[in-house]
């Protein structure tokens, strides 16, 4: 087993495609081969060694660590299959795309298309777990098929769009169009005030897409042991928890479990009766 440590070198590159850094490929290479691995930066082929310094050590389990200024590094941990992939710093788009197993931990924010399908594939993440301590951009969990994503901060628009299965926990606020085209899977939102506000603003559309929210006791949450998941669950258990099924406009049976602030919770289901004539 090996631990590979990549540190981003400073450079003028505006966009780096890091999909070539895959554990299963690294395991077959010498350090020299890794350093000469071709990558794409600003549309040009560049040796990995020019972009990152690399250190490989024997370890008890496979681990990839990447750190530095990674905001313009896209496709980190794409196709990750086993072992741990640790990202120290905020990452770019497409993190964990097409991931099939193992775990990815991001100590920072991530860009758009977290765990999206890789390339032209129709299925996104299909196994393993991703944990983001900060925020995520748009289209997080797009076409996700299996696995668990935990986002400690907020997410952008189109969260879990066309999700097929799996579980996503979000501790912070969510953007527009949550769960568009969701078929199955679970979305757990610890701070859904904006989600509810958007549904209220477009009540006709919301009625088409979501079932009426019901109070729900999710006993399965007791099975989670991951402290990052427990942190989100802990937030949710302090407030009334509701469940709606989505996306009903495409016959979806996915579930969105959400908690809202007490003020918003009081508004759910009471708006018509309390409205001024």
């Amino acid at each position: 087993m090996t631990a590979w440590h990549f540190v981003r070198r400073s450079g003028p590159q505006r966009s780096i495609d890091a999909t070539a850094i895959r554990r299963r490929d690294l395991a077959k290479m010498t350090l020299g081969e890794i350093e000469s691995l071709p990558m794409v930066a600003d549309g040009n082929a560049v040796a990995l060694g020019e972009l990152f310094s690399v250190v490989a050590d024997l370890d008890a389990s496979d681990q990839v660590v990447i750190e530095g200024d990674l905001k313009n590094v896209h496709g980190i941990a794409a196709g990750h299959d086993q072992g741990e992939f640790l990202v120290r710093g905020s990452a770019g788009n497409g993190l964990g795309s097409g991931m099939t197993g193992g775990s990815v931990l991001v100590e920072g924010d991530v860009g758009n298309f977290l765990a999206e399908p890789i390339g032209a594939h129709k299925i996104g993440m299909s196994g393993g777990s991703i944990s983001v301590t900060g925020n995520a951009g748009d289209y997080a969990g797009h076409r996700m098929r299996r696995g668990t994503i935990v986002i400690g901060g907020s997410v952008g628009a189109m969260l879990a769009a066309s999700m097929v299965a799996g579980t996503i926990f979000v501790a912070g606020p969510v953007g527009e169009n949550v769960g568009v085209g969701m078929k199955r899977g679970s979305l757990l939102l610890a701070n859904a005030d904006e989600f509810v506000a958007q549904a209220d603003a477009d009540s006709l559309g919301a009625c088409r897409r979501f079932s009426t929210p019901q109070r729900f006791e999710p006993s399965f949450l007791a099975l989670y042991q991951d402290p990052r998941v427990l942190n989100v669950i802990g937030q949710m258990q302090r407030l009334p928890l509701f469940r709606t099924r989505a996306d009903r406009s495409v016959g979806g049976q996915a579930e969105i479990l959400f908690t809202v602030s007490a003020a918003t919770a009081c508004g759910i289901g009471y708006e018509e009766s309390t409205a001024t004539p």
């Binding site: 299996r146 696995g147 668990t148 299965a165 579980t167 199955r184 679970s186 399965f220 099975l223 989670y224 042991q225 991951d226 049976q253 579930e255």
Partner: peptide
């Protein structure tokens, strides 16, 4: 058909 699978740990 309404059963839900969850893979946890």
């Amino acid at each position: 058909g309404h059963q839900i699978s969850k893979v946890i740990d």
